[in-house]
Write a protein that binds this DNA or RNA. Structure first.
Length: 205
DNA sequence: AGAACGATCGACT
DNA sequence: GTCGATCGTTCTA
C-alpha cells in the first residue's frame, strides 16, 4: 500500500501540518484498516514555541521521541483520561510535531463507533461529534501510549495520499478551503498563544 | 515524597 | 456558556 515516506515529514512543521489536510490516516487493527480523512491539524515547534512540550529543546523521557527522526508517532496521555496523536516532523535533533485534531471516518466505521461509544446508542449528537477532537481520534482508532514511537513508514499506522492507495473508492468531496487560526488549549503559552498554527478544512458554500 | 497542572471531553445550565 | 472527571509527567525538595 502506497504511503507517505519519511521525507514527507522531514520538512517544516507548519507546511507539513497544512499538507496533511485531506490525506488519509490508516490504523491497522486486528488485520483490518481503520481510516479517517484528516481535517484538522496543529503545528508545534520546540525551537520557538512555548506551547510545545519540547520548548527550548526541553528533553525528558516523554519528549525524547520528538528529537528523533521524523515520521514517527508521538502519543501522550492528557487530562488523566485521553490521548493525543502527533507526527514527528523536521530533521533529527529538531523537536517538532503535528497534532492530529480531527478526521472524517472513511472505513472501519463500525469498529470506530464501538471503540468510541461501546454499546451505548448512537445519537445525533454523537454522530455529529464522532472524530472532531484529538482525544476522540485516539479513542476511535485505539491509540494509546502502547503505540507511542511507532514508525509511520511501517504497517500499523501510516498516512496515504489517496483512498485508492488502500483500495477504497474515491469519494465525491465538496469544494473545500483551508482555514488557519490560533491553536486550542494553549492560553498559557504567552506570545505563542496567538500563533495561527491550527489548520482545518471548511466546506465552501 | 508530594504537588501542580494539562495540546480534552461530555454533561449540564 | 460552566464545570468535574482523572492520572501521568514534571518539577521541587
Amino acid at each position: 500500500m502506497a504511503r507517505l515516506s519519511r521525507e514527507f515529514y522531514a520538512g517544516g512543521t507548519v507546511e507539513t501540518a497544512q499538507k496533511l489536510l485531506g490525506k488519509y490516516l490508516v490504523r491497522m487493527l486486528d488485520g483490518k484498516p481503520l481510516v479517517g480523512r484528516i481535517t484538522e491539524t496543529e503545528a508545534y515547534i520546540g525551537r520557538c514555541d512555548k506551547a510545545c512540550h519540547a520548548y527550548n529543546y526541553r528533553r525528558t523521557e516523554r519528549t525524547a521521541v520528538l528529537f528523533g527522526p521524523p515520521g514517527h508517532a508521538y502519543i501522550y496521555f492528557i487530562y488523566g483520561m485521553y490521548h493525543c496523536l502527533n507526527f514527528v516532523t523536521e530533521a533529527e535533533g529538531e523537536p517538532a510535531a503535528v497534532l492530529i485534531r480531527a478526521v472524517e471516518p472513511t472505513a472501519g466505521i463500525e469498529t470506530i463507533r464501538r471503540l468510541r461509544f461501546g454499546d451505548r446508542p448512537m445519537t445525533a449528537y454523537r454522530r455529529k461529534n464522532f472524530m472532531n477532537g484529538p482525544g476522540k481520534v485516539c479513542q476511535g482508532f485505539a491509540l494509546t501510549t502502547a503505540e507511542n514511537r511507532l514508525d509511520l513508514t511501517g504497517d500499523t499506522l501510516f498516512v496515504c495520499d489517496s483512498p485508492a492507495d488502500i483500495g477504497l473508492p474515491r469519494p465525491d468531496l465538496p469544494r473545500e478551503r483551508m482555514c488557519a487560526g490560533p491553536r486550542v488549549g494553549v492560553d498559557y503559552a504567552e506570545e505563542a498563544r496567538d500563533f495561527p498554527w491550527r489548520f482545518w478544512l471548511e466546506k465552501e458554500e
